[in-house]
Write a protein that binds this DNA or RNA. Structure first.
Ligand SMILES: NC(=O)c1ccc[n+]([C@@H]2O[C@H](COP(=O)([O-])OP(=O)(O)OC[C@H]3O[C@@H](n4cnc5c(N)ncnc54)[C@H](O)[C@@H]3O)[C@@H](O)[C@H]2O)c1
Ligand SMILES: NC(=O)c1ccc[n+]([C@@H]2O[C@H](COP(=O)([O-])OP(=O)(O)OC[C@H]3O[C@@H](n4cnc5c(N)ncnc54)[C@H](O)[C@@H]3O)[C@@H](O)[C@H]2O)c1
Lengths: 237, 237
DNA sequence: ATTCATTCGTGAAAGAAATAACGATTGAAA
DNA sequence: TTTCAATCGTTATTTCTTTCACGAATGAAT
């Protein structure tokens, strides 16, 4: 069981977004939402919302919409590992500490379980509720506590070395904030969060903004709200 | 002049990455690099590197490669505004402070010029070399100092309101870290950095990792290094 | 009951992006 | 000088993603 068909990364990102947007609307068993209303919140088209939910096997009802509770459990069925998942963060600097503050202990099913830093002042302390350990304990702890994700927030020149240690210890996925691309085998999934690219990309497109040349808000798949009709996308004319 | 043809966001992101990776290799006027060597550093195919450079008008020479200095100025010609660009960061909390530390004053042509926070303890202080101002001065300062980018690192429920203020004051691009999608007109470019989606995406694909099912490292366009032949992508057989 | 505007599901079409393929070049080795 | 394998530029192809289009379903209004 677990995962039946391959779901595209873009869809997975949107499901994560949909869940966040839906949660505040989930009031009781009988709350419903229309595809175009969620589409507006998410900055995508209603068609895309419907198509994404098709993959979940969630069916809506014309003139009623989708039952929010059903959507939420459908999404959780895809995104959340039944047994939960644990991450280790390496590099408790400015960015690492911000991430610890935000993510550690936020959800039951996915959380940052331990942090590591080579700085002896940090190792041993508790940062935002998360224990920070010395690097020497990384391998043992990751194995013992069945941590399967790594978050890399060390400086550029240490990122590959840290990635190697994490992979060696058995993690299957990496979230990399260092401004390089890591070398790794096929069996590891790496998601790069490239804040420098993001910053430079905004700068470029903001500059090139003579109206009607660049349409899309973001290539991640969230077109501008104003590009679409405000309600519904396929109304008969 | 400035921008001749529309360059896709994916390509812009890669150009930003290429530049970062090339800088340490730029030693003197006669340093060259082969498309497949840069491809390996960037985690993309050599074909893609060549195609990206085609758009810059940078030509390589068979058996010699691309002149690195030429690539760097070609990329800067695209990415950097001749007059420079200034950003304002709003929300000097955990994440905002980390970004200030990292970006403020890092480059000549693109930097965080001012920060804003509604907390009176923060407004007035200097954080990582960047002045923090009260919200009341946002509009004036953005206009006076010709700031054209906004970085949003306030809590979810304040993000839209802050975006409105920034747009009202005249910024053309937003880098949004809040976990929602902002409403805005066509003339504003918004790049969403969705760390929650990134985290949940890694978790999902790490879990689904029974080898040979999921191939690509990242849908952002950086396939696994091991998917490709180690040297060259189109060697004659 | 009948009508009807809305909303859904989904096959087909379009669009975007990445990869493969291959002739053309070119520096170096014989 | 000739040969040759490496590398380039570019077109064609493939793959992936989004949008269009429209029949079917359905709740509400009459
Ligand atoms: N802070 C940002 O906004 C930002 C933006 C873009 C990219 N990044 C990248 O994120 C990473 C972290 O940035 P930061 O600002 O938090 O840096 P930082 O210097 O504040 O923190 C780095 C931390 O890593 C620890 N460390 C260094 N080498 C280590 C090793 N080998 N093993 C374990 N721990 C080690 C240090 O002790 C420190 O605590 C860097 O790669 C940076 O390029 C950060
Ligand atoms: N820290 C992370 O790792 C992380 C991860 C994912 C998403 N985010 C998002 O990034 C944003 C910031 O996160 P954080 O952890 O830095 O939060 P934080 O609470 O540490 O900082 C928020 C800052 O914004 C200021 N602020 C609040 N309302 C404001 C307003 N109306 N105008 C101006 N300033 C205001 C506060 O004074 C505070 O300094 C949030 O939207 C959060 O959801 C953060």
């Amino acid at each position: 069981m677990s995962v039946e068909r391959e779901i595209s990364p873009r869809t997975i990102e949107r499901l994560s977004l949909y869940r966040r947007l839906l949660l505040p609307h989930h009031e009781g068993e009988d709350s419903y939402i229309f595809s175009h209303d969620l589409a507006e919140l998410a900055g995508v088209t209603a068609t895309q919302v419907r198509r994404d939910f098709m993959q979940l096997g969630c069916m809506g009802v014309p003139r009623t919409g989708y039952r929010i509770g059903e959507l939420l459990s459908g999404i959780s069925g895809i995104l959340d590992a039944p047994a939960g998942q644990r991450a280790a963060l390496v590099g408790v600097g400015h960015l690492g500490a911000a991430l610890l503050n935000h993510f550690s202990g936020r959800w039951r099913w996915l959380h940052i379980h331990a942090a590591f830093d080579r700085d002896p002042d940090k190792a041993g302390s508790v940062i935002h509720g998360c224990h920070c350990f010395p690097m020497s304990e990384l391998s043992t702890l990751i194995r013992e506590r069945k941590i399967d994700l790594g978050i890399i927030t060390v400086p550029r020149d240490h990122a590959q070395e840290v990635a190697n240690q994490l992979i060696e210890a058995g993690v299957q996925g990496l979230l990399n904030f260092a401004p390089i691309r890591l070398r790794h085998g096929d069996d590891i999934y790496v998601e790069n969060v490239d804040l420098t690219s993001a910053f430079e990309t905004v700068a470029y497109f903001a500059r090139c903004r003579r109206p009607s040349l660049f349409i899309s808000e973001s290539h991640r798949g969230f077109p501008s709200l104003d590009d679409r009709k405000l309600r519904g996308d396929d109304v008969k004319s």
